[in-house]
């Protein structure tokens, strides 16, 4: 478990990083926390000729509240995001989901941008970005561009980033005040990748109707799944157990899970149903509790 020989370039600035990436061609990899890449290197499953290390780019390490949106630099550590009061106030679903990412030591090293760009469909960050309609900002030799989350995740571990582009920031619309969030994750052990996780956010108005609801599902398709049909069933309605069950079934229908040694596809579909129901039930209960308080 020793990496093959490679050139390690510690970027001194974003422009330097992009130049290095362009010069190295398709055989370069970006190091942005290393929690997934370093094991792949050690097992020689990835053998890049050049490693572009973004670890020194303080310019990509920030959390900025722009009012309607929250912008987070790609090199911001997951633990920093998780514990930020600014993030908790603007997009509470993100810290709620980050608590399920590996263990604290992993979140201390891993970055929000690294997780997004790695595009593991079982990971929490991509699902949060899908649920909240985030935008991802990338920079390359042709300048910066903005990509909607729904267009960013292409397939298993694949994004629509070009090989010479670097993800620099994510921008997430502020959740409406009074939003409740819930994450229902089923992993074999604490800290493991989810077999399936359902991430939900809702705003239920004072009359008890669902004004807004967002549901995304991790681990149940080659990309994070946004449960649009389930959301449409719920919006404008007053939640009842029957409605929640119907929405859960609709959410499960939106999944396209694969089979692996930990769970067959059918099992993941069952989990999607059960976890969506539990997630929605929690959202409703939390709203009621908040109102009672």
């Amino acid at each position: 478990m020793k990496p093959a020989p490679l050139d390690h370039v510690r970027a001194t600035g974003l422009d330097h990083a992009i130049e290095t990436l362009v010069a190295a061609g398709e055989d370069a990899k970006i190091l942005a926390g290393g929690q997934s890449l370093v094991p792949l290197l050690a097992m020689r499953l990835a053998q890049p000729t050049t490693l572009v290390d973004l670890g020194g780019l303080r310019e990509l390490d920030y959390i900025r509240d722009d009012g309607d949106t929250l912008e987070i630099g790609a090199m911001t550590r997951s633990r920093t995001v998780e514990t930020s009061p600014v993030v908790a106030g603007a997009v509470p679903l993100l810290p709620a989901a980050l608590r399920y990412v590996g263990h604290v030591t992993i979140r201390n090293r891993g970055t929000i941008g690294g997780s997004a760009a790695h595009a593991d469909p079982a990971a929490e960050v991509p699902s949060v970005l899908r649920a909240l309609d985030a935008e991802l900002i990338a920079s390359g030799p042709r300048g910066p561009r903005t990509i909607a989350a729904r267009d960013f995740f292409d397939s298993f571990l694949l994004t629509t980033l070009e090989p010479d582009e670097i993800l620099t920031a994510i921008r997430i619309p502020r959740q409406p005040s009074g939003s409740v969030v819930a994450v229902e994750e089923f992993a074999r052990r604490h800290g493991d990748f989810a077999l399936v996780a359902v991430l939900g956010a809702a705003h239920i108005d004072s009359s008890g109707r669902i004004a807004e609801v967002r549901i995304s599902i991790a681990g149940a398709a080659p990309t994070p799944v946004r449960a649009d049909a389930a959301e449409r069933l719920l919006v404008g309605r007053t939640p009842t157990p029957e409605l929640v069950r119907a929405a859960a079934a609709a959410a499960s229908d939106a999944t396209d899970p694969g089979s692996d040694i930990h769970a067959p596809a059918d099992y993941r579909r069952t989990l999607a149903t059960v976890l969506t129901r539990r997630c929605l039930t929690r959202l409703v209960a939390d709203t009621e509790r908040t109102e009672a308080a």
Partner: peptide, 16 residues
């Protein structure tokens, strides 16, 4: 063999 890391060979940890 399909279980060649601790991501796939699941040893219970302190939380389990």
């Amino acid at each position: 063999p399909l279980t060649t890391t601790f991501m796939d060979y699941l040893i219970p940890t302190a939380t389990e």
